[in-house]
Amino acid sequence: MTLTRKHIGRFGIAFLAAVAIYFLHGGMQAALWEPAFVTGWILLGGMLVLTLLNTRKKLPFLPLAKVRNWVKLHVYLGWFVVGTFLIHLDFNVPNGWIETTMAVLFVIVALSGVLGAFLSKSLPPRLTRRGEEVIFERIPIFMTQLREAADDLAVYSVEQTTSTSIADFYAERLRDWFTRPRDYFEHIMELGGRRFALKQEFDSMERYLNDTEKEVLGELRALAEKKSDLDYHYALQKTLKGWLFIHIPATYGLLALAVVHVILVHAFAGMSL
C-alpha cells in the first residue's frame, strides 16, 4: 500500500477543512460565542453522512454514485470528523459520564475505522497472492469437501498399500486439523510456522514410504496445502468482516448518546435552536 498524490491531495482537503473548523472555533471563542454548539452540529452532521455509506450499500439499485466513491468519502470525511472531534473537545479530555462514554465510543469508532481502512487496503492483495478466490460464506462447505476427500484418501491408502502408515499419520496428525479453520493469528501475521511444520512432517513421513504410498501421500499433501490456503482465506476474510463488528455497533451507540447529548446541552445551556 503506497501513498499516491491522490491520497495526499484528498487527505490535504480533509486536513484543510479541519483547520477551517479550528479557526471557526477559535474565532467564535474569541468573540465569546459558544463554538461547541457549532462544531458539535458539524460533528454530528459529519457522523450522519459517514453512516450513509452503510445505507448506500443497502440500496444498490439506486443511482447514488459508486460505492467505491462512497468509501473514499467515508475515509476522508472520517479524518475530518476526527479533527472536528478534537476541536469540539477543545483538545481536552471530557469528564462527564455521558461525554466520556461518547468520547470512548468515538475513539473506538475512529480507531476501528483506521484499522478497517488499513485492513481493506492491505489484506485483499494478500488474498490474491495465495490460494484460489473463494466466497467467505462457502468456506465451511469447501472445508468439509477437503476433509471428506482426505478421509477417503486415508481409506484408499489402506486399500492400495495394505499399510496403515498414511492412515495413521492422517488420523493422528491431520484429521482434527481438517475439521475446522485453524491457525488464525499465524495467517493474519503471515508467520508460516505451522505451514512449515506441516511440510516437515510430510517430508519426514515420505522417507519411510514406498512409491505407491508416496503417491497417495502426495495427494494428501495437496489436500493439506489446499486446507491451509483455505484457512488463510478464512482468517483474512474474517478479519476483513470482523472489524465492522466493532466499528458499526460502536457508531450506533455513539449516535444514540449523541442525541441525548444534543438535547442536554441545548436544554441546560439555556439555548434554543
Partner: peptide, 10 residues
Amino acid sequence: WAHSMFTGGS
C-alpha cells in the same frame, strides 16, 4: 428538555 430546544432557552 427536548421541547425547550425549540421553544426558547432558559
